[in-house]
């Protein structure tokens, strides 16, 4: 995996919301098949990093390459079509669409997407909920749906923002198993996580973000040795 081609290369990424300068030159990369986390305290720019990759912030400068294609000048829909699946922090389930419509809504952006049956195999809770409106689903169901629908698009790169936030431990565990299964299937993932204990065993590498920049890169097997540094950076 260490010499697999780059799925995502972010270099010198700056991003603004209106006049607020949020990202100050973020640098990181993800190779095909890797699972990488963006760690950090609240408000340091992790969610903004994912949004900036998709062009969802205001102005952005620097370089974001998806599978070698420079995307900094592209609108969001063109970036998504390069094979990016996005699960936003607020989950973004369409409340007025049924669960089934939400699941099948997204356009195909790559080959080999999941079938609905495969999504249900991964998240059995969704099987009986197809006719319910998105707004009527529980938080856990919405999260599974938000993940399931991007699996159906065939996107090889998944940007997952705080998928465990506010969910019961049993759901968090199911999501963790799903991440492991997706990694085994070859998906490349960027997880924004608050829950370090959830992330530490799932990811190959961790990037710690502070004040809109990457301040540390930690491989999985370095965590034990750098525990004190990690705790200090995350404010644990």
């Amino acid at each position: 995996m260490a010499d697999a081609p780059f799925m995502l290369e972010v270099a010198g990424l700056n991003a603004w919301y209106a006049e607020s300068h949020i990202l100050h030159g973020v640098d990181f990369h993800v190779r095909e098949g890797e699972c990488v986390t963006l760690l950090g305290r609240n408000g340091v720019g992790r969610t903004t990093t994912l949004k900036a990759i998709l062009g969802l912030t205001g102005r952005r400068t620097g370089s974001v390459k998806v599978r070698g294609h420079e995307t900094i000048g592209l609108p969001p829909h063109r970036i998504a079509r390069l094979g990016v699946g996005y699960c936003p922090e607020e989950r973004g389930i369409y409340a007025t669409l049924t669960a089934q419509e939400n699941l099948t809504l997204l356009p195909k952006v790559g080959p080999g997407g999941f079938s609905a049956a495969e999504v249900f195999a991964l998240f059995p809770n969704l099987r009986e909920r197809g006719a319910s409106l998105g707004g009527r689903l529980s938080g856990g169901e919405q999260q599974m749906l938000a993940l399931g629908r991007i699996l159906m698009t065939g996107a090889p790169l998944l940007l997952l923002d705080e998928i465990t936030e506010g969910l019961a431990p049993v759901i968090v565990e199911a999501l963790g198993q799903a991440i492991v299964a997706l990694k085994a299937r070859g998906f490349t993932m960027v997880l924004v996580e608050q829950n370090f204990h959830f992330a530490r065993h799932l990811a190959d590498r961790h990037y710690v973000i502070d004040h809109g920049q990457v301040v540390a890169e930690i491989a999985r097997d370095e965590i034990a040795g750098r525990e004190a540094e990690v705790n200090r950076l995350l404010g644990l």
């Binding site: 969802l56 829909h77 419509e101």
Partner: peptide, 21 residues
């Protein structure tokens, strides 16, 4: 479904690959 989703949250729909404009 695209039109209803676009009514609810157009920005996110564009991030999924739909040419919302």
């Amino acid at each position: 479904a695209y039109l209803r989703a676009g009514t609810e949250n157009p920005r996110l729909l564009q991030a999924f690959g739909i040419n919302v404009p």
